[in-house]
Amino acid sequence: MAVRAKKQSPWFVLLIIVAAVVMWALDQRKSGPEEGPRPQRNEKVSANPPPSSKPLPSGKTAGRPGTGHREGRYELHRNCKLAADNSNDGDSFRVLLPDGRREIFRLYFVDTPESAFKSYRNGENNHQRIREQAEHFGITSEEAVEVGKDGKQFVLGLLGKRPFTLHTEWDSPFRDQRYHAFIEVEDGGRPRWLHEVLLEKGFARLKTKPADLPDGTKAASHRRHLEALQSAARKSRTGGWRTTRSAAAR
């Protein structure tokens, strides 16, 4: 008498099919090519991120830091020139480096008032920042923007006169292709740091990232010097302090 085959449970059959599909998928993942770029990890920001690699007008591409002469922690670039750019302002501007690269640099230590009220595509604007700048000088937001315009005109005029020297370590904390820098200019027939001149003339407030100077002066010591310049500008009603509503020390 023949033995009747035992009928398999539908769940058992389904389990076999699912296991087969999973094994096939794992095998394809190991042997097949990946589709699309891998998601970027949240890596630690490098102290020396590379400059922009976008094509330049000259047909060159921006290379990694190292084309300038290095003195201590900073890379030194002589004979730099101001490059035209709609984003140029009193404390941030595009610079033409001697090797042909065009990069945007941001001054250490200082913040100049915004030169216009702006609204951005994401719905944000710079109005709160302008209010903070106005509060620092003790003036209205509209007056702060006028100071910003004066500061921008002064800086772009100064940098546009003659070549200048720039010190940078390619520090871009927000990875937005804007790099901190110290800039040497000629003012009154002698070399000066641009951020010092801005504070002295009342076109900036002491704010943003500090750093040790290229000549070795420590940031804390230099900040005390800048505080004295800012205080003197306030007392003499220079630049943004000329219409201040209060001469009291802040």
Rank of each mutant, 00 (worst) to 15 (best):
D91R: 05
F93S: 02
R94Q: 14
L96G: 12
L97F: 14
L97R: 05
P98L: 11
R101V: 08
I104N: 10
L107E: 09
L107C: 07
F109P: 06
F109M: 10
T112Q: 05
P113Q: 04
P113L: 01
A116R: 12
F117G: 05
F117K: 07
K118A: 13
R121E: 14
R121P: 01
R121V: 11
R121Q: 13
G123R: 07
G123I: 07
E124T: 15
N125M: 13
N126E: 08
H127G: 11
Q128N: 14
Q128L: 11
I130A: 05
R131W: 10
E132T: 15
Q133P: 03
Q133A: 12
E135L: 13
E135I: 03
H136Q: 15
H136W: 13
F137E: 05
F137D: 03
G138Y: 04
S141D: 09
S141P: 08
E142M: 01
E142R: 00
E143V: 00
V145C: 00
V145N: 01
E146G: 00
E146N: 08
G148W: 03
K149E: 12
K149D: 00
K149G: 06
G151I: 05
K152N: 04
Q153N: 15
Q153E: 15
F154C: 04
V155M: 09
K161F: 01
K161D: 13
R162F: 08
T165Q: 04
E169K: 09
S172N: 10
S172K: 02
S172E: 01
F174C: 13
F174Y: 15
D176W: 07
D176H: 11
R178F: 04
H180W: 12
I183H: 09
E184S: 12
V185C: 03
E186L: 07
G189A: 04
P191K: 11
L194G: 07
E196P: 04
V197L: 02
V197T: 09
L198A: 00
L199T: 09
G202P: 03
G202T: 00
T208S: 15
P210W: 01
P210F: 01
A211Y: 00
P214E: 04
P214W: 00
D215R: 07
G216E: 02
K218A: 06
K218M: 03
A219S: 01
A220P: 04
A220M: 05
H222G: 02
R224M: 14
